[in-house]
Structures are given as structure tokens and as C-alpha cells.
């Protein structure tokens, strides 16, 4: 897994738009502890902005009344939160044990050679971004690649090449 602790800043203050603001207020009362709202709030921010910026994290921490570092922890922990703008095709390769044993590394290496992106990077043309993620829950059909939320199971290098070709 790549280091996700480098946050990007938009340079502009972040705030939920009216719809999400109402959604936030509606949801937060559900939780006995306000901090439980962090993850839904992060989702909302990602929906609104496409990715989660420094300002968004600060805003959420402020809004919930917790430390920004705590929101930061969660945002970096879960790989489904995008901490930087993703490519047109966001490729997630599972790196947990089953997939690793079934040679996910070949796929990662292929991407590094062919497109020139390493985990955590986005290709220069902005079409592909790669992330190594923790277990996607399809260990029986490892290795798993997720492209824009869509699962592709029992991948090997050939299948992946074919998959990549369909994306071009």
C-alpha cells in the first residue's frame, strides 16, 4: 500500500452544499457518538468534490467537533476515500495475502512498465490511476482488480492486458 498521508489542498475553503448539509444534519442525530459521523461525512465530501482535500477534512472535523488528525486517520485508512483526484479509470489492485500469493505483483509491475504508474500515482494523461488496496473480500477468486468500483476476478497478466485493452 502506498503512503496516503500526503494530503492535497485545493486552496479554497470547503463546505457542504445545501443538500449535503441537510443530509449531514439528518444523519448525525442517528449516532450516539458524533465521531461515528466521520465516515459518512467523508463519503459526502468525496461525492461532492470527487476526492477529499485537506480543507474537507478540516471542515468535517470542525463540523463534528473532533480533531482533524482523527478524521485524517480514517481518511487514510480506508482506501475507498480518494485523497487526490483519480484518473478516468481508477484501478485498485488487492494486495492482501491471497491476491499476493496469486501474483498480483505481476499486474502492478505491468502497469508500472506499460503505463508508468506506481501505486498511488496517476498517469500523465489522467486516464489511469492505480491504488493498492487491502482485502476486497474476494479471496476465493484472487487476484482481484477493481476498476471504477467494478470487480474483475481471477485475473492474471493476460486477462488483465485484455481488460486494459477494453478500457483504451
Amino acid at each position: 500500500m502506498s503512503d496516503r498521508s500526503e494530503l492535497l489542498s485545493t486552496g479554497e475553503p470547503f463546505a457542504f452544499d445545501a443538500e449535503r448539509d441537510a443530509e449531514f444534519e439528518r444523519l448525525i442525530v442517528r449516532y450516539p457518538i458524533r465521531e461515528s459521523m466521520i465516515m459518512p461525512a467523508l463519503w459526502m465530501a468525496q461525492e461532492q468534490q470527487g476526492w477529499i482535500s485537506t480543507e474537507a477534512i478540516e471542515y468535517i472535523a470542525e463540523r463534528i467537533g473532533t480533531f482533524p488528525a482523527k478524521v485524517f486517520e480514517l481518511a487514510t485508512f480506508y482506501t475507498m476515500y480518494q485523497l487526490k483526484p483519480a484518473g478516468q479509470y481508477h484501478i485498485c489492485v488487492c494486495r492482501t495475502l491471497s491476491c499476493w500469493l496469486r501474483d498480483k505483483q505481476a499486474i502492478v509491475d505491468y502497469l508500472a512498465e506499460e503505463i508508468g504508474i506506481r501505486p498511488g500515482q496517476i498517469s500523465e494523461d489522467g486516464r489511469f490511476s492505480l491504488e493498492e488496496v487491502e482485502c476486497l473480500g474476494h479471496c476465493g477468486t484472487a487476484p482481484v482488480v477493481q476498476v471504477n468500483g467494478e470487480f474483475h476476478e481471477e485475473m492474471d497478466l493476460e486477462k488483465f492486458k485484455a481488460l486494459l485493452a477494453t478500457l483504451e
Binding site: M1, R4, S9, T54, A69, F72, E73
Partner: peptide, 22 residues
């Protein structure tokens, strides 16, 4: 009760960090 620190990332990339700029 100032909460400047957090453990970011997961697995072998986990590390203690401050929130950027704080």
C-alpha cells in the same frame, strides 16, 4: 486534549503523523 497526532494509513505503511499544517 489537543489531538494533534494520529496514526495514518494502514498495515505496513501506518505511521504517526500530525495533520498537515497543525
Amino acid at each position: 486534549k489537543t489531538g494533534e497526532l494520529g496514526i495514518v494509513n494502514r498495515t505496513d505503511a501506518a505511521r504517526v503523523s500530525i495533520f498537515p499544517g497543525k
